[in-house]
Write a protein that binds this DNA or RNA. Structure first.
Lengths: 209, 209
DNA sequence: GGCCAACCGTGACAAATGTCATGGGCATAC
DNA sequence: GTATGCCCATGACATTTGTCACGGTTGGCC
């Protein structure tokens, strides 16, 4: 596979973003570029996977925040099946997500604050086989320290996001309530949080859960 | 003021959105419409106010979520100075914000899920002096019951957003801790929340604080 | 006037939450 | 082998949080 577009052939692009306004604008704008052709546009992650398999685009432009499957998950499943390249576009770049994305063999990672004409260049770069990671995001990702939490602490935090009482968390994990409180307390200390909710929030921001 | 654009004159538009990618795309796309001319584009609320005063556009398209001044605040200050019309674009439409927006004499209110070509029509409608409120948002705003919280409950919730302990809230309000807990408890009951944080979150979602 | 409802402020009480000290298991280092 | 360090699990303890019952004030209504 690899470079399917020699000079003269246009880049076949799939666009996935759940906001119609933005997706429509992107499609229209990128479609104007002489060397880019939008072959599919969808509004959720699952549809992105399906259409990518159908249309086999050269490049997939995926929003990170989407219903169905988020950008990284969609990327993983697309790349497992189709010979294509993926660019993730994101609004808030939680450090740690970049790590996940790179692990998923994503070729590009840009924030939505990127100017539109620059995005076209990123698409060309990626289609040509290069990688493009936004400077800013890369810097914060490097600065971001590694996750200091243990497995159990992460488990407890993850469940505490969707649950109200410690007892419920304990039930899920088959642990005594005191143990759960202990893990949560430990996580709170490490993250300098005042409550388990805040700790979970921080861990989420960092992309650890 | 009012209808500055008889047939033949193009609609002069200001676009404010903090995400370059989207703003760029919007400007380019709307600029393609024969009867729309983008005369200014900015990335924050304060700049929107300045440029609106300078360029006196027919219509201002403002993102609700912006640094500096949010869409409604910018709209208020623009409309106090310039004879123009404002359309607010939003991602998550908290009910209650619509109320604020209408009170600020905003002429249009649309979600980002609006297709791009429809947005152009909304701009034309608004420029012609009509109003356009998205059906969906209007419906949820009407469905949304009036705020059941009392003044003190709102005070307590507001402060609890930025503060950690009940004691601090009590200090701010010059009340006994027990009193604050009481107000918060009352609010929690009314909003069916399990913690003051959740109650504050709900009140915020509803646009009450 | 008396009655009623709503809001505010307060402290006593019960439940939940977070902290701490302890012990077991399992690696790696000496 | 022993020692050290880390993670896990647990129960006892103190603090924080939410609930409840009470009294005071205000304003509308008969």
């Amino acid at each position: 596979m690899s470079d399917g577009q020699a000079a003269g052939r246009s880049i076949r692009l799939l666009v996935a973003d759940d906001e119609h306004l933005i997706r429509g604008a992107l499609c229209a704008l990128l479609g104007l570029e002489p060397d880019i052709e939008v072959v599919a546009d969808v509004d959720n992650g699952l549809a992105a996977i399906e259409r990518a398999i159908e249309t086999r685009p050269d490049v997939c432009l995926l929003d990170l925040e989407m219903p169905g499957a988020d950008g990284v998950e969609a990327a993983t499943r697309i790349l497992a099946t189709v010979a294509t390249r993926v660019i993730i576009v994101t609004r808030h770049s939680r450090p740690g997500v970049l790590r996940r994305a790179l692990a998923a063999r994503v070729a590009g990672f840009v924030p939505k604050s990127t100017p539109a004409d620059e995005l076209a260049n990123v698409i060309r770069d990626v289609a040509a086989g290069r990688r493009y990671i936004d400077q800013e995001i890369a810097a914060t990702a490097l600065t971001a320290e590694r996750c200091p939490l243990t497995d159990r602490e992460l488990d407890a935090l993850r469940i505490s996001q969707s649950t109200r009482s410690v007892q419920e968390i304990a039930d899920h994990l088959h642990l005594a309530p005191g143990t759960v409180r202990n893990h949560l307390s430990s996580a709170m200390t490490k993250l300098d949080a005042a409550s388990r909710h805040e700790a979970a929030e921080i861990a989420w921001q960092q992309g650890w859960i």
